[in-house]
């Protein structure tokens, strides 16, 4: 509902009708609309960051670590498209700071360490974190977006394949390694 109707269209009342539960039941679990949105945001965030860190360690070699990140992030995005869309909406709302603070701590440390280790080991060209992130994940998220929309440029039908992922990944590695 959040994804389809946005923040303004979303209400506790409409939600209870859509779920076939009573208003009172919903309010037993959540104080108000803000409380519900924050709790959902933290829940999705925690799940996303948990999935992203699966089988990943900041001490991995740069290529292996980034490969694992691509695998984990794309698996999550393809498996839970609604959660991802919902999280994006909440993250860009007034609740964004709160949910990131609550769900992000360990994730931020792990990703920060991975980035610093890679530069120290000279496996990554020394660039700012922002430039690193854009180049490292930009292509992945662009492909995932095409995939979730089912179409690419000019409305052409599109399905993401492993071959495309591997090709893009190799180009990213080429760009980021010294």
């Amino acid at each position: 509902m959040l994804v389809e109707d946005g923040f303004q269209g979303f209400s506790m009342n409409r939600l209870t009708k859509a779920c076939g539960i009573s208003v009172a039941t919903l309010y037993i679990y959540y104080k108000d609309k803000d409380d519900l949105i924050q709790k959902i945001g933290v829940e999705i965030g925690t799940k996303f960051f948990y999935e992203t860190l699966k089988d990943f360690s900041p001490t991995m070699s740069f290529k292996d670590g980034l490969k694992k990140q691509w695998e984990n992030r794309s698996r999550f995005a393809i498996k839970f498209p609604n959660e991802v869309a919902c999280f994006e909406i909440i993250r860009h709302s007034t609740h964004g700071d709160y949910i990131l603070q609550e769900s992000l701590k360990d994730f931020k440390t792990a990703m920060g360490d991975f980035f610093k280790n890679a530069i120290n080991k000279k496996e990554l060209v020394p660039v700012s974190l922002e430039v690193f992130w854009s180049v490292a994940y930009g292509p992945l998220y662009a492909l995932l977006r095409f995939h979730s929309e089912g179409k690419s440029l000019g409305g052409k039908s599109f399905t993401l394949t492993k071959k495309m992922m591997d090709e893009s990944f190799e180009l990213v590695i080429k760009a980021l390694t010294p």
């Binding site: 209400s11 506790m12 009342n13 309010y27 609309k33």
Partner: peptide, 13 residues
Amino acid sequence: WNIDQQDIDCVLR
């Protein structure tokens, strides 16, 4: 206690 004044029913909890 709180009231959800964003809700049409102004739910008091």
